[in-house]
């Protein structure tokens, strides 16, 4: 006879529902982070490797040319690398957070259906949403801090700006991750979803958000991409915090409120959609 019989206490005695009801979101995050650790090498390679490539090629390579022709205060009164760094940081934060909500959500609902298993325990649909976001933010904060340190090493960011920049990056990462989480919750299968998001949302957002040049350098009929893009809001905010890029105080508020509003909109859409799908 197996040992399963000898020590059996029964759930009534063993499990206090109050514990998962209080901490469930953290258990989901813990589960997600365990999964992420299996991909640690890939996450570091893409999460840091990509931004570092941009830093070297555009920031340093093209930056040298820009500074040569424009002088070292050519754009926004600072060297090109200083101008570029907050944009690269914002992009890394947003991309990192997004990766950890989109893939897991399609996996959880469709590929492995793990979300249904999780919901079969004491965990609620809302806690699954919160846990996925929490784990994405855990990756986001780690990626942001590591990347910031690299940027400081290259003299692209002042050390003193790191605390506020980290906070701003997290708000941006959360805002966009929450929106993408809610969108992904409506997707039934991959269906080319990632290709569409990559080509029609991420790439234009990266290119036209004042990343490589001031947004105002674009014709007015393209500038709207920046206005709705969390990358632009985060970048403009980051530039103000990093090197004192001149921004109206009310505009700073707009940036923060816009990013927070994205996050809130994403969460309040994701909660009922997760609940609905898990009850199917």
């Amino acid at each position: 006879m197996t040992t399963v019989n000898k020590t059996w206490q029964g759930a009534a005695k063993l499990v206090d529902p109050a514990t998962p009801i209080r901490w469930g979101a953290f258990y989901v995050a813990e589960f997600r982070i365990r999964g992420m650790l299996k991909w640690a090498a890939a996450i570091v390679a893409f999460g840091l490797g990509n931004p570092v490539l941009y830093l070297l090629s555009i920031g340093i390579g093209i930056g040298a040319m820009v500074d040569k022709t424009q002088g070292s205060q050519g754009i926004d009164g600072v060297p090109y690398l200083t101008f570029l760094a907050p944009a690269l940081l914002a992009t890394a934060a947003i991309q990192g957070a997004m990766d950890e909500v989109t893939f897991p959500t399609i996996e959880g609902f469709h590929w492995t259906k793990m979300f249904y298993s999780i919901n079969n325990t004491a965990i609620s649909s809302k806690q699954i949403v919160d846990g996925v976001i929490l784990s994405a933010m855990a990756r986001c904060v780690l990626q942001v801090i590591l990347y910031e340190l690299i940027l400081v090493l290259f003299g692209a960011l002042p050390l003193a700006s790191l605390p506020v920049l980290t906070l701003a990056s997290l708000i941006a990462g959360w805002g966009f991750a929450a929106v993408m989480l809610s969108v992904t919750a409506f997707v039934n299968d991959d269906d080319g979803f990632f290709a569409v998001v990559g080509r029609f949302i991420l790439t234009p957002m990266f290119m036209f958000s004042g990343t490589f040049f001031p947004l105002t350098a674009l014709p007015i009929w393209l500038q709207w991409i920046g206005w709705i893009s969390p990358v632009w809001h985060a970048t403009d905010l980051g530039r103000a915090l990093s090197y004192g890029h001149p921004v109206e105080p009310w505009m700073l508020l707009v940036h923060v409120v816009y990013l927070l509003a994205l996050g809130v909109a994403g969460m309040v859409t994701a909660y009922p959609q997760f609940k609905k799908r898990l009850a199917e």
């Binding site: 759930a11 009534a12 499990v15 206090d16 529902p17 998962p20 009801i21 469930g24 492995t112 259906k113 793990m114 249904y116 298993s117 079969n120 325990t121 004491a122 965990i123 609620s124």
Partner: peptide, 16 residues
């Protein structure tokens, strides 16, 4: 959640 805390569920599909 209170009820599910004391249940064990083996779904039709092995969603591991």
């Amino acid at each position: 959640p209170e009820i599910r805390a004391h249940l064990g569920v083996v779904p039709q599909q092995d969603n591991l």
